[in-house]
Deep mutational scan, measured.
Amino acid sequence: DLSALRVEEVQNVINAMQKILECPICLELIKEPVSTKCDHIFCKFCMLKLLNQKKGPSQCPLCKNDITKRSLQESTRFSQLVEELLKIICAFQLDTGLEYANSYNFAKKENNSPEHLKDEVSIIQSMGYRNRAKRLLQSEPENPSLQETSLSVQLSNLGTVRTLRTKQRIQPQRTSVYIELGSDSSEDTVNKATYCSVGDQELLQITPQGTRDEISLDSAKKAACEFSETDVTNTEHHQPSNNDLNTTEKRAAERHPEKYQGSSVSNLHVEPCGTNTHASSLQHENSSLLLTKDRMNVEKAEF
């Protein structure tokens, strides 16, 4: 173990290094160091905050020279020094078990990766560091076993998940096959086929009936047209017969005018059967003409 005197000496050296690497504005270890034209180094955030307070150039807090945003430059070497100082402080805390008085939040800088452990060898070769390295080497064999167990647990979990997924996939297939086998029997399929065939026959029977009705309507229309044509021909046949009657009536009127007047009046009210309204109107006109002729003949006879 380190003596108290040596611990104090190391602590004083760390404090001196820390004062050199402090920012003059925030009085902390410089984060993202930036250098000016006057070779003074500050935190990048502190300098941008200072420049944004005034429009135009501002003055350096140490030498009062003008500073602009374009004049600022990043210093990589200074950032490396800060990183190495942080590593020294971490090693000091691990070796002594004491917390550094002016320690900052170094938890963000710590890294437990194997590459980081290899890099620590180049920091300080001390008894405390050696003991700590031995402890780490002793704890390393235990870690692979834990990793193997965790991997086995994960693989077993994956296997159970896969088996569950396969079961879920197989179950719908089985149910679907069961439904297909038990849903419709052979008799049901035959009945469905016969039902479809009967429906098709009914459709075939319905369509000819409609065509037959249309044919019957067409035949009825044709018969009505033929009947009207026969009526017209009958009226045409009746007209010459009426003319013959008129000639006979004229002759009778010349011989017996008194008797014919009474008979002509009675004939006005008689309509021949089986004739249309057109034929009756023609008869009325003929009878009126005959009456006028008879009157003329009677007057001539009187004179």
Rank of each mutant, 00 (worst) to 15 (best):
D1V: 13
S3A: 10
A4K: 15
L5P: 12
L5E: 09
R6L: 05
V7P: 05
V7F: 07
Q11G: 14
M17H: 15
E22F: 08
P24F: 00
I25A: 04
L27C: 05
L27G: 09
L29G: 01
K31W: 11
P33G: 07
V34Q: 13
V34I: 09
V34G: 13
S35Q: 12
D39V: 04
H40A: 11
I41M: 15
C46G: 15
L51G: 07
N52S: 07
P57C: 02
C63M: 14
D66H: 04
S71L: 14
Q73L: 14
R77S: 13
S79Y: 09
Q80G: 02
Q80P: 04
Q80V: 06
V82S: 02
E83S: 06
E84N: 08
L85P: 13
K87M: 03
K87I: 03
K87Y: 01
I89M: 14
A91I: 15
F92A: 11
L94Y: 07
T96G: 13
K108S: 00
K108V: 05
H116Y: 01
D119E: 11
I124H: 12
Q125D: 04
Q125H: 11
Y129N: 08
K134D: 05
Q138C: 08
E142N: 05
N143R: 05
N143E: 05
N143M: 04
P144Y: 05
P144Q: 05
P144M: 01
L151D: 13
L155F: 06
L158M: 06
G159A: 09
T160N: 10
V161H: 11
R162M: 08
R162Q: 06
T163S: 09
L164G: 11
T166H: 11
R174G: 15
T175M: 10
S185H: 03
S186P: 02
S186L: 02
E187Y: 00
D188N: 09
D188L: 05
T189N: 11
V190F: 14
D200C: 05
E202D: 10
L203E: 14
G210M: 15
I215L: 04
D218L: 01
A220G: 05
A223G: 02
S228Y: 04
T233V: 02
N234A: 04
T235I: 03
S241N: 02
L245N: 09
L245M: 13
T247G: 14
T248Q: 02
E249G: 01
E249A: 11
K250P: 14
E258Q: 10
K259S: 03
Q261H: 02
G262I: 10
G262M: 01
V265C: 09
N267L: 01
E271F: 01
S280R: 03
S288N: 06
L289F: 03
L290T: 15
R295A: 08
N297I: 12
E299I: 01
K300E: 01
E302V: 03
